[in-house]
Amino acid sequence: MKRKLSLFSVPYVVWMAIFVVAPIVMIVVYAFSSAAGGFTLSNFTQLGTYAVVFGRSFKLAAIATVICLLIGYPVSYVMSREGPQFQRIAMVLIMLPMWINFLLRTYSWMSILDNNGLLNQLFQSLGVIDLYNRIFGTDLAYFRMLNTQGAVVLGMVYNYLPFMILPIYSVIVKLDHSLIEAAHDLGANTFNVFRRVILPLSFPGILSGITMVFVPSVSTFAISKMMGGGTELLLGDLIEQQFLGGAYNPQLGAAISLVMMVIVVVCMWLMNHFGEGEEQAVML
């Protein structure tokens, strides 16, 4: 049982201990402490108050993830079928926004979606808003797009879409082409080749794409703050308030973080489990 660690692994073990294990332990300790320092469960009993925020966070993250999947999978699939030149350029274009500062990207969206923003000006000049008012008998000066849940979801999708495309693309592009030919040979049309071979074999990519979009979406605070205008409070904002905001209460913040982490882990576990089940289902 006594396996001696190699000398080279020591720095990494130390690193992990200091920067991964220790912080998690601290979160756990904080979550079960009162402001005075004693053991308490009150941090958790308070959480009921924030059920709405939990619900909203997970709902918006789930919607964003589904939209990313619906956009990302076809993009990955189409990309993988094109020539190498196309794939290289498409890859750069997908990555490029990620190399631009996050705040700048999000501010741009704000100026596009703003009440006096680019889109509303466009709608105005096209007469879309007047048309809408006439049809529905309303009296709108603009469409309210910024500071809505939709805007938050849009921000998530825009920022995290590459994390959905990349893992799916890398799985599909590596698929052995002879498997596709074999499926054709055995009588499958294009749809069945996709459903019975390409889709099940790209499942690992879908799973990691979902994870990589859902997890940052559920804990984001900047996107909701900027695109939601503080009206659509998410878990990330709530946690931020406990540590930096006026509602200073790090113990509660730790408890929220911990619960969020547990829920995410359970979600991921269920999904991976479901993934295996899916494979089994295809087999049976």
């Binding site: 052995d176 002879s178 498997l179 030919e181 055995l186 499958a188 074999l201 295809v282």
Partner: peptide, 24 residues
């Protein structure tokens, strides 16, 4: 197309579907 021909192929590297068992 291949799926409409009454011809089947044994591929060079077999091209068995890795996500399915032998029966499937």
């Amino acid at each position: 197309p291949p799926n409409k021909r009454t011809i089947n192929t044994v591929f060079q590297k077999y091209a068995l579907f890795p996500h399915l068992n032998v029966f499937e």
